[in-house]
Amino acid sequence: MSEDDELKALERKAYRSIFDDGIWDLFMGLIILSIGLSTFIGTILNLPEGWDTIIPVLIMNIIAFLIFYLGKKFITIPRMGFVKFGPKRKVKQLKLKIFLLFMFLVNIILLFIPLTGVLRNIQIQPLMLTLVLGLGAFTLPFCVVPYYLEFTRLYFYAFLAGIGLFLTEMLNPIVSSPLDIILSFAITGGAIVIIGLYYFIRFLKKYPLSE
């Protein structure tokens, strides 16, 4: 390994340590969990059709963002310290922010699609539709995030996010709706939250708060 490679490896090691806290995992897990739970919350609150998903998803996403922001600010930085990376990382982060903003707008549009009633006219086998929709609308865009972040665990989470809808369709004959969607996203999102909690606890032990 040349000295240049060693310095690059050192920078990568320092950079990847920012994912030791498990907060990204918790954030992604909560976002996926929100899809299932929003249906549950929407049913409980007896919200009008269409809005029963939109309002709870927005609320849960805001909660996930708050956990991410406050967790990083009040838990991670005081324990792990603060670091600013070089210009190459900044460019990558900027590209990711632009992509996330774009995806946010796309998701807003997707959320409103059920209100238009277009989905009722689609004549595709439900299992195939959910698989294509899941991998196309969740997994592929989700894969851009770990690419820019160089955070490999997220590729697995992207896959889990994608199979959520497919799993719902698989569970549908066994459990009634909305329990199928709640269960499938509780399994996929819950698995990510558990992984996140494992990393978070490990982080708290590894990086005690200095006096």
Binding site: L10, M80, G81, K84, G86, S210
Partner: peptide, 23 residues
């Protein structure tokens, strides 16, 4: 020096954690 060379800036806590040195 190596750590500070590969990043733009870092605080004392981050450097301490990465290098494993005492305060």
């Amino acid at each position: 020096m190596s750590y500070l060379y590969v990043v733009e800036s870092a605080d004392f806590v981050f450097l301490r954690n990465q290098t494993g040195l005492t305060d």
